[in-house]
Amino acid sequence: MTAEHSLRPLPEGTDTEIAVVGGGLSGTLAATLLGRSGYRVTLIDRHHVFPREFRVEKIAGDQIDKLRRIGLLDSLSTAAAAFDEIVNVRKGRVLDRTRARHYGIFYDDLVAAMRAELPKAVRFVAGRVSAVEAGPERQRVSIIGQPDVT
């Protein structure tokens, strides 16, 4: 994968170069970076909108630097709560303090913020994968109730 990769005609009957199955944070970031690099990507997840659950993420340190470097920190910071200090306490006693920028965010809000940044070269399909077939020249991903992705 290189930034110089350019969209080229695909073999007839093919509608994507790369299928990413699973549109949580990792799958969405992979699809975003591949799409930005010029690949035709299909991101497949069974949820059009990631469901609300009690799952919270803390983004800090080099994670912030990496998101800034790939141009996704602004979307994250808009959806997250920023804070600059963490105090670790045990049995009423302060163990330590960490002073640095952190972001706290519900996981579903994090996924939504990152999905909002998917480039046009990425198609999102909401559905459940039922089969994957690998062949020497062509792969096929079958999705319940959707046309196959090849």
Rank of each mutant, 00 (worst) to 15 (best):
A82P: 03
L33Y: 12
E57L: 12
R93S: 08
K91Y: 14
R123V: 03
P119K: 06
V89S: 01
E57Y: 13
G135Y: 01
E133Q: 14
R101S: 12
F106V: 05
G38F: 15
V41P: 01
V111E: 11
V89M: 06
D108M: 09
V122Q: 04
D108R: 02
F54A: 06
R128F: 03
I64P: 00
D96Y: 15
R52Y: 03
Y103E: 02
F54E: 05
V125W: 11
Y107I: 08
D96L: 06
A134D: 08
K120W: 12
R52N: 02
D109I: 11
R68Q: 15
K91E: 13
L43Y: 03
L72H: 09
V49L: 14
G127S: 07
H47L: 01
A134N: 05
E85V: 07
R99V: 07
S77P: 02
V111N: 10
R52P: 00
S130W: 12
N88L: 12
E133N: 01
T42W: 13
L72A: 09
A121I: 06
L76H: 05
A100D: 14
T32Q: 09
R52C: 03
R93D: 12
T42L: 03
L33Q: 15
D84V: 05
F124H: 12
K58A: 15
V111F: 08
E133H: 02
R46Y: 09
R55F: 01
A81S: 06
T98V: 07
A116E: 04
V41G: 14
E133L: 06
V122Y: 09
I105V: 10
V87M: 11
K66W: 14
T42I: 04
T98W: 15
R55L: 12
A131S: 13
S77G: 05
S130Y: 11
V111R: 07
L72Q: 08
I44G: 02
F50I: 05
P119W: 07
L110G: 00
R90M: 11
R99P: 00
F106Q: 07
R140G: 01
E53L: 10
R52S: 10
E137H: 14
L67I: 04
K120H: 11
R101P: 00
Q139M: 13
V111D: 06
F83S: 01
R40I: 05
R36P: 01
I105F: 08
L76Q: 07
D74T: 04
E137M: 12
T78P: 00
L72M: 13
P51Y: 10
P136A: 03
S130T: 05
E117A: 07
L76I: 11
H48A: 13
F50Q: 07
R69T: 10
E53S: 06
A60M: 03
K91T: 10
S130N: 07
A112H: 00
A126I: 05
L118C: 02
F106L: 08
I59P: 01
G92T: 11
R68V: 02
V87C: 08
E85K: 14
V56G: 10
K66Q: 11
R40N: 09
K66S: 14
K120Q: 10
